[in-house]
Design a protein around this nucleic acid. Structure first.
Length: 487
RNA sequence: GGCGCCAUAGUGCAACGGUUAGCACGGCAGUCUUUCAAGCUGCAGAUCCGGGUUCGAUUCCCGGUGGCGCUACCA
């Protein structure tokens, strides 16, 4: 039964990063393989030698690793499989399905432009296909530089049933005699994919819709070889907000950038899976287990999808506040380390405190990075006062005096608990005939530097008297300067 | 230009001949409240256009329009 085991592949070119479009394609392949109990293969399409370096490959692999898309075979490198391509090319040539072409790229370009101008289709005219056998032999003998072209049948059409797009048909007259082997001996994409997919016994080719129009060319090669073509599934493209193909103009396009910004892989995966695929009902939050269980190519949409950053952030926030703590703790640790805010005690004697802090913060955080920026004051004593917060909550000049009173009141609190702290702070407000909110908001700025933070009394209890009192004192001391600067 | 694919609210998806066209993100308003987030309640918002087929079309067919893709000795 292993003969019909599903085998799929993700075949990126080593561009130096994993593009979100590629990531989604990889994800669909991976989900399909896992769903079918199949094999997920990784292959690097690096036949364009000058664009391929080891570190570029590594970046792509890291993107996949971050996303948790583990591969069962590979990575294979096209650059190391040249013999296979040449063998296949030779077979095609020997069988009369391919012929040497002596036209230079410059000539071709020129002819193409001319044809365009004259309003004719810019298709290769097939002149080298009609060369006399003796002439070809002679020029080959002379060692003339040449490419190898595929013989596309003049008549008829090629059709295939795409699992996503449905039946697709293209007339042969629309397809030119495309190049299989470049004059430097490198295979082109068409020869490369077919050879690889054949050798690797790929059963399903799941790739971007940008390959749809070229698929008939590859099918023609399979037919020439008398080998069955794999099943194709072309998934729609991911577009930017302006509905053009996603590119740097649209902001981050590499998954690494999202990793660095503080997205959780699980959230990113969930979001990506729903771009062009639906479980068939209204479910949104789908963990990996559920994703693999429910994934099906039949449910892949045929229209392009716009990458919606806001929704991605919502997914992230959702995971941040609802995942089991143990699952996200390592990610938070990583972020704090990155920002130089991590203390080993957080995992040891301070662990209980650390967990309490995270629980207080995570319902209101969107990105992991928020832990080290917005929530900095929870993990470090040095932090800046957000000017907007100063402006908003330290407006009232009496606050300097009120906060001093509060400080004294807090010094007297014997049981440093939420309720006792609250009593003390409210007491000061009451005594002065002002709303408690005035003091509460100002205290929040004193303790966190922010206008927005978790509920104050919880925060105070958590920070502890040892940190609260000095921070209050520090703000009182700097009150005049700070408020002056914000006017 | 030619060829191919696509077309449901701003965005992502449901509805695969019969629903007041559903859900989520986002927006707006209210509620809670010590700021915020979350939660809860409510509001606005879509079947690209035109023809068919049918008792009945978001759904099937044709045409148009629009978007995207391909049209390389890139992948």
């Amino acid at each position: 039964m292993t003969e019909n085991k599903v085998r799929v592949r993700f075949a990126p070119s080593p561009t130096g990063f994993l593009h979100v479009g590629g990531a989604r394609t990889a994800l669909f392949n991976w989900l399909f393989a896992r769903n079918q109990g199949g094999v997920f293969i990784l292959r690097i399409e690096d036949t364009d030698a000058d664009r391929s370096r080891p570190e570029l490959v590594e970046a792509v692999l890291n993107g996949l690793r971050w996303l948790g898309l583990d591969w069962d075979e590979g990575p294979y490198f096209q650059s190391q499989r040249l013999e296979s391509y040449h063998a296949l090319a030779e077979r095609l040539r020997a069988a009369g399905h391919a012929y040497p072409c002596f036209c230079t790229p410059e000539e071709l370009k020129q002819r193409r432009e001319q044809a365009q101008k004259a309003g004719r289709p810019p298709k290769y005219d097939g002149r080298c296909r009609r060369l006399a056998t003796e002439e070809v032999a002679a020029r080959l003998e002379r060692g003339e530089r040449h490419a190898l072209r595929f013989v596309v049948p003049e008549e008829g059409r090629t059709a295939f049933d795409d699992l996503v797009a449905g039946r697709v048909e293209v007339a042969h007259e629309e397809i030119e005699d495309f190049v299989l082997l470049r004059s430097d001996g490198q295979p082109t994409y068409h020869l490369g994919v077919v050879a690889d997919d054949l050798d690797m016994r790929i059963t399903h080719v799941i790739r971007g819709a940008d390959h749809l129009s070229n698929t008939p060319k590859q099918i023609l090669i399979y037919q020439a070889l008398d080998r069955p073509a794999p099943t194709f599934a072309h998934v729609p493209l991911i577009l930017g907000a302006d509905r053009t193909r996603l590119s740097k103009r649209h902001g981050a396009t590499s998954v690494t950038a999202y990793a660095e910004e503080g997205f959780l892989p699980e959230a990113f995966r969930n979001f990506l899976a729903l771009l062009g695929w639906s479980p068939g009902d209204d479910s949104q939050l789908l963990r990996t287990e559920e994703l693999t269980r429910r994934f099906s190519l039949q449910q892949v949409s045929r229209s392009n999808a716009v990458f919606d950053r806001q929704k991605l952030e919502w997914f992230n926030a959702e995971y941040l506040r609802s995942e089991p703590l143990e699952k996200i703790l390592p990610d938070i640790e990583k972020e704090l380390r990155r920002a130089g805010l991590w203390r080993d005690g957080f995992a040891a004697e301070e662990r209980e405190w650390f967990v309490a802090a995270v629980e207080l913060l995570r319902p209101r955080v969107r990105l992991l990075r928020d832990f080290s920026t917005w929530a900095r004051a929870f993990f470090a004593d040095e932090f800046d006062y957000d000017p907007a917060a100063v402006k908003k909550f330290l407006k009232d000049d009496r606050l300097a005096g009120f906060l001093s009173e509060e400080l004294q009141a807090l010094e007297k609190v014997s049981d440093w608990s939420h309720d006792e702290i609250e009593k003390a702070v409210r007491g000061v407000a009451e005594k002065n005939g002002v709303k408690a909110g005035l003091l509460i908001n100002a205290t929040r700025v004193a303790l966190t530097g922010q206008a927005v933070a978790p509920p104050l009394f919880n925060t105070m209890e958590l920070l502890g008297r040892g940190r609260v009192l000095p921070r209050l004192a520090r703000l009182i001391e700097r009150f005049a300067d700070l408020t002056a600067a914000s006017r």
